[in-house]
């Protein structure tokens, strides 16, 4: 067997990755203050609109999906 990559086996690497991720989020929030916008909709030009919308969308997505699962989930052999 060839050598394996084990980069995410070490907890400190996962932690480093997350820290890098969080920092990039903060940087994105700060940069937005300095961006010139020409928006079609008024809210589109609001500072950090897309951050809020992206986060909210994905949380809503998961909530609705979990709700949907109650109604649509069936056993793997349902159609057999």
């Amino acid at each position: 067997m060839k050598r394996e990559l084990k980069i995410f086996d070490k907890p400190q690497n996962v932690k480093r990755f997350l820290v890098f991720f969080y920092i990039s989020l903060v940087v994105l929030l700060i940069i937005d203050f300095f961006i010139h916008k020409h928006a079609d909709f008024p809210w589109e030009g609001a500072t950090n609109f897309f951050a809020v919308y992206g986060f909210g969308s994905c949380v809503a997505l998961i909530f609705i999906a979990k709700l949907l699962r109650i109604f649509v989930k069936r056993d793997e052999n349902y159609y057999d």
Binding site: D32, H36, G54, F55
Partner: peptide
């Protein structure tokens, strides 16, 4: 600038929700 940062925010904060 607006498109790149807007799109990055949309995606990265979506990723934050996932995380």
């Amino acid at each position: 600038g607006a498109h790149v940062v807007g799109q990055l925010q949309l995606l990265m904060f979506g990723a934050l929700a996932f995380c």
